[in-house]
Nucleic acid binder design. Structure first.
Lengths: 212, 212
DNA sequence: TAGATTGTTAATCGATTAACAATC
DNA sequence: TAGATTGTTAATCGATTAACAATC
């Protein structure tokens, strides 16, 4: 809402994490500077496109030199909001939910998982990776009291719409949804869907094209 | 390889599963015909785009009538290769691997999970949802003997490159990769990456844009 | 300074939308 | 037949690539 400078397109945003990833790789190898054409070799995007993308946010490079790897990654950190901590909960403490609770890389991105919610009385009250599993009946109360920003949805399809509506109702800001449903959310809620099925069908299409 | 008719762009392919999903929804409600503009209302794509997309593969509609829902879904089934069965294994029987083994919707897409591979001797020899967990040492042998087409990679990042190279070596056709790595594969192998981290960073970006 | 590489403008390419004749 | 809606061509829009002057 705040700085709607010039609305950067989603195709650009989608490439930023990729630049970030490759920069991390080369930084780990001790590389201090990188040119757009070196980044092009790594990522497969053209040097021109890389420069265009970055210049949506500012001139991070230097003529005749290229980009400082650490500095550029830091800029992308900021653009992507990785310097911010989001209080996060997982709704659905089944296998997928606990797989995600366990996935350390998310913490590095600033998503701090505070609780899991589930309806199964056998696991409510336990912990998964030292994260408490709480009854889903207490979800709204918890979210409001603990200033939760983001919810990750890993409940079965049939519960997902209801859960998401309840989350919106109690003021959640962002939703990372793994349930294979389509739902529209108000403008003040950000939703990002992981569509495993769609991805698998894409794989199926290219398999068929390649081998049948 | 076979019918490289006119190479349909990936942006089109990505929408097909979405059409498929909405068609299934309306078919379940008993709807027998649908116009491109009705599909537009459901999916958010323009009617024009929907007609363009479908006409990449043939004229499935009828002037003055629209599309028969069941027939159109069947056509999309075929285009996406959903009528074909792919023998599939999961490499990595941790939480994510078993979450996926457990996820029924994949079976409906024709991916039949035959085995899980893992290096942990405590689980090798057991079953997860009646799917055997086999030592990863026997992976190549199994894949070749049982004509496995597709491997799903859910091993930790540090093992992923090695596992994928071994799979390519022994003739796998498709890879559905959950490990956060970048790897290039030969032309005769199809790889589809699930980049959970990238998706989360996209969420982070829009959260920041909306609220900071 | 000379060489390198950015930032940025202009040209191209591809994807989306609009329009409408064909036809059920 | 008249109305509706497709299939398809043409127009527009946006994203990518090319080119190069600016400058470190």
């Amino acid at each position: 809402m705040s700085n709607k400078t010039n609305r950067v397109s989603e195709t650009v945003i989608r490439r930023l994490p990729i630049y970030h990833r490759y920069l991390t790789d080369v930084i780990e190898k001790g590389v201090e500077r990188i040119s757009s054409s070196e980044l092009s070799n790594l990522t497969g995007f053209t040097a021109s496109q890389i420069r265009q993308d970055l210049n949506n946010f500012g001139g991070f490079g230097q003529q005749g030199y290229g980009y400082n790897t650490i500095d550029l990654r830091e800029q992308i950190d900021k653009i992507l909001g990785m310097d911010h901590v989001y209080n996060t909960v997982i709704v659905g403490a089944g296998r997928l939910g606990s797989a995600i609770a366990n996935y350390n890389e998310f913490k590095e991105n600033g998503f701090k998982i505070q609780a899991l919610f589930d309806s199964n009385p056998e696991i409510v009250g336990t912990e998964i990776d030292s994260i408490p599993v709480i009854s889903v009946d207490k979800m709204e109360e918890y979210i409001q009291n603990k200033n939760i920003d983001v919810a990750i949805i890993t409940v079965p399809r049939e519960y997902a719409v209801d859960v998401i509506n309840r989350l919106i109702e109690c003021g959640i800001k962002g939703i990372w949804n793994f349930a294979p449903i389509d739902i529209s959310v108000p403008d003040n809620v950000v939703i990002e869907n992981i569509r495993l099925n769609d991805s698998l069908l894409k794989l199926s299409y290219y398999l068929k094209e390649n081998f049948l």
